[in-house]
Design a protein around this nucleic acid. Structure first.
Lengths: 261, 261
DNA sequence: AGCTAGTACATGTATGTACGAGTGGAGGAG
DNA sequence: CTCCTCCACTCGTACATACATGTACTAGCT
């Protein structure tokens, strides 16, 4: 607090006091007076400094939290959020030439970046496809699919959940329906089985997480997610897989290369 | 309120009352009992129903708002947010074959979708490139750029802001430095001038908007944005333009097609 | 008919109080 | 010295109250 020069509030301003206080703190964070990981002055200290009620202050702190700038830790204080190193996802990460290394894309990339990759809560089952999945896969209503869901972690921190849907008529009884899908992942298995892949289509949304997503990815309040749905098309023109992934927006930057023709 | 069956809170539960109330309302919205555009029961009604203090209720409503599920309108009430129709942005929207129609991509796409496109707050000036821009354009430190900034609207609603940076040595004194960049936009002008475009690189982030961005895009609280930086490369291998755009996440879905080779 | 002021009701802002619950250090007991 | 209890400090939850401000309808005047 000592090093921190927070201005006074202007009671004559149109801007509400709690927003003014939020502005001051936001600027202090932006300037680097409150660097990532540092402790924001406590509620009592700020109450004394500004001469306002606790609710007023909590409103101000609430704004910063909802902007994802700070996190409150019960019993410890409020801290400026330190962002993890970002992870760039190149658009060619599923290209055949990368697959030939025999590792799944996630594992290879994370190791290259010096992180420890892991995968947990792997579940596989077979169900009726939802309307959306059936449509994307070009299945008849009620068509069945193999569902592979899992969560990816880097150095123990969850960063992404993914659910793949493969038509049962393709995957049933194959290694795709097994927990270990083998070297190169399910795309390699699909190609082994003669479904030579032609192209991928990715559909990207950005939104606030659902409660379960926030929990699964241990997201701080105010952190949005990427919601990416990738459809893999075989050379036959048929969709052979859908992968529905939710990624923490803190961790990922998506990169695409596009021809200008 | 009459048709709405909200359960009672469980005071013995570990889950705080205001979160329980938020859960009830979230479920009601999810079930469709509170359809988009409908009015959420007023604070007084909910206070009476649940027998809680106003602050408790406002905390609950605050959660829904920060999740982007509702918007409060001063003096009118709290309403379930109705999402505008989404706008799909195809990855080939800047391909040469589309440019030959003589319209800028945004105008053509919006008209095709039945909306009225417009562009405002167009500003053009020349400044020193920031470190990031200089690096992306491969300019020497302090190199100068023409900056074109504008805001795109559909049916009068702002949906996207965009700022383009073109090296001054390329653009100075050309139509690119004029408010009307001519048919096909600045990419067409660059090609006219012999900078035949080879590829684009897009870098996508997802985050909460800054205050100015929320204002410029009239974003409801709790709505994140796409932050997309596109670099255009000429066949010479040199970067000839950067476009830095911020898009409202409830309007846009980004679509990319990728080869599997 | 058309404007105006009043009124009821909505959310916004702000103060005050009280207690609950997690954290971490100080200080005493062993 | 070590361990453990206690306490001070932190944020979390919940209550009560007051007044400000925006909206929409209504009664009444012109």
């Amino acid at each position: 607090m000592a090093d921190l020069a927070l201005p006074e509030v202007d009671p004559t301003s149109d801007r509400p006091i709690f927003k003014q206080i939020a502005d001051h703190l936001r600027e202090a964070i932006g300037r680097g007076d409150l660097p990532p990981g540092s402790k924001v002055p406590s509620e009592s200290q700020l109450m004394a400094h500004y001469g306002v009620a606790r609710m007023t202050l909590r409103n101000a702190l609430q704004i910063l939290q909802s902007e994802g700038l700070t996190v409150a830790e019960h019993g410890r204080g409020v801290f400026v959020r330190s962002r993890p190193p970002v992870r760039r996802l190149a658009s060619d990460r599923f290209a055949r030439r990368h697959r030939e290394r025999g590792k799944a894309a996630f594992i290879a990339e994370t190791e290259d970046a010096g992180g420890k990759p892991s995968v947990d809560s792997l579940q596989i089952n077979e169900t009726k496809a939802s309307a959306d999945v059936a449509k994307r896969l070009g299945l008849a209503k009620g068509g069945r699919v193999i569902v592979r869901s899992r969560r990816y972690l880097i150095d123990g921190h969850p960063v992404e959940t993914a659910v793949s849907y493969i038509p049962s008529e393709i995957a049933r009884g194959t290694q795709i329906a097994q927990p270990d899908s083998g070297p190169g992942g399910i795309y390699a298995r699909l190609e082994d089985m003669g479904h030579r892949l032609d192209r991928f289509e990715e559909e990207i949304r950005c939104r606030m997480p659902l409660r379960e997503e926030a929990k699964a990815l241990r997201l701080a309040p105010g952190v949005p997610v990427f919601h990416l749905v990738r459809t893999a098309f075989a050379e036959s023109g048929k969709a052979v897989e859908i992968c529905d992934t939710v990624m923490s927006s803190d961790v990922y930057v998506l990169m695409y290369q596009l021809p200008a023709r």
